[in-house]
Amino acid sequence: MSGFLSLDRMGIVFETRNGPYRALQDVDLRIAQGEFVTVIGHSGCGKSTVLNIVAGLLRATEGGVLLENREVNSPGPERAVVFQNHSLLPWLTVYDNVRLAVDKVFRKTKSKIERDEWTRHNLRLVQMNNAADKRPSEISGGMKQRVGIARALAMEPKVLLMDEPFGALDALTRAHLQDALMTIHADLGNTVIMITHDVDEAVLLSDRIVMMTNGPAATVGKVLSVSLARPRKRLSLADDTEYNRCRADVMKFLYRQTETDDPRAA
């Protein structure tokens, strides 16, 4: 497997009021270019922490992250983040939110006209070109999430990091955005790490599913390859044996985590 992006025996200890808390230990993962990887695990196990370390927003206490053999130690636009709650700047319009990122990343390489066109192009990708002049407070949650994705895509990142991007959306909007994301991924071939709570979403979108054990000292429990042909159609997948095998696999893993967790909670 190519070492496009690798997490090497990564661990982190947080200093808390009740002393040090080991959130992650020995997280090991190699991700190939163009791969779509989802991370699934129980709430509080450390999924966001993993993502934030890859983003460079947090520093690992042990081990680290290599992107194209260069160590990651600060945030940067080549690892664009789609935040869980969209994080659009409320005082900027939809267009300006994306344009801010475009201006920053392409200030030297694109002319003003090109940057405008590139901003609009990315808004079209997520079908938000018609709402370009609206403020975030004037659009729905699903639309905000799409703008967040457009902003991340517009940076032309080497890796797209998404922290439960569809977590707060209703099932129908969610399905639409999953389809949109699959299309974009097929066209652009981005490398994606996406966190989710939703087993169906994980199986539908992923090349591989990374299942995390519960914390403290959470780590990669199991990695499952999803060998479903693309493009994937959600309706025909319902009866697919591979789809259902993967689904059951992930469910079993998560359920076993709950069981092993019980005595500790009691």
Binding site: A55, G56, L57, S74, P75, G76, P77, R79, A80, V81, F83, N85, S87, L89, L100, A101, K104, V105, M155
Partner: peptide, 11 residues
């Protein structure tokens, strides 16, 4: 989150 946006964009 707003500050994280600024960090990712390297403002």
């Amino acid at each position: 989150d707003y500050l994280n946006v600024s960090r990712v964009l390297q403002l």
